[in-house]
C-alpha cells in the first residue's frame, strides 16, 4: 500500500507541474491527502495510555 501511495504522490507531483487546471490539481492533491490519511488511520492501532 505504501508503494502505491508513493506512486500516487509521484503522479500528483507530475500533475501539479504539468497541468494548469486548478480543479485537476486539487483533485489529485485531495486523493493523495485522503490516501495518506487512511494509511495513517490504519497504523493507529491502539489508544494511548495517557491522560490529557
Amino acid at each position: 500500500m505504501d508503494t502505491l501511495i508513493f506512486g500516487l504522490l509521484l503522479a500528483a507531483a507530475l500533475v501539479v507541474i504539468l497541468v494548469r487546471t486548478r480543479w485537476i490539481v486539487l483533485t489529485m492533491f485531495f486523493v493523495g491527502f485522503v490516501a495518506v490519511g487512511l494509511l495513517f488511520l490504519h497504523h493507529v492501532t491502539s489508544v494511548l495510555d495517557l491522560s490529557f
Binding site: 505504501d2 501511495i5 508513493f6 504522490l9 500528483a12 507531483a13 501539479v16 507541474i17 494548469r20 490539481v25 492533491f29 493523495g32 491527502f33 495518506v36 494509511l39 495513517f40 497504523h43
Partner: peptide
C-alpha cells in the same frame, strides 16, 4: 510505518510549493 507516513506528509505539503514554483516559472 509512521516514519514513512511522515515522509508522505512532507511530500504532500511540498506539493503546494511545487505548484507555486512551477507555475510561477511558466508564468501561469
Amino acid at each position: 510505518p509512521l516514519c514513512i507516513s511522515q515522509r508522505m506528509g512532507m511530500m504532500l505539503s511540498s506539493l503546494g510549493a511545487l505548484f507555486i514554483v512551477s507555475h510561477s516559472l511558466k508564468r501561469t
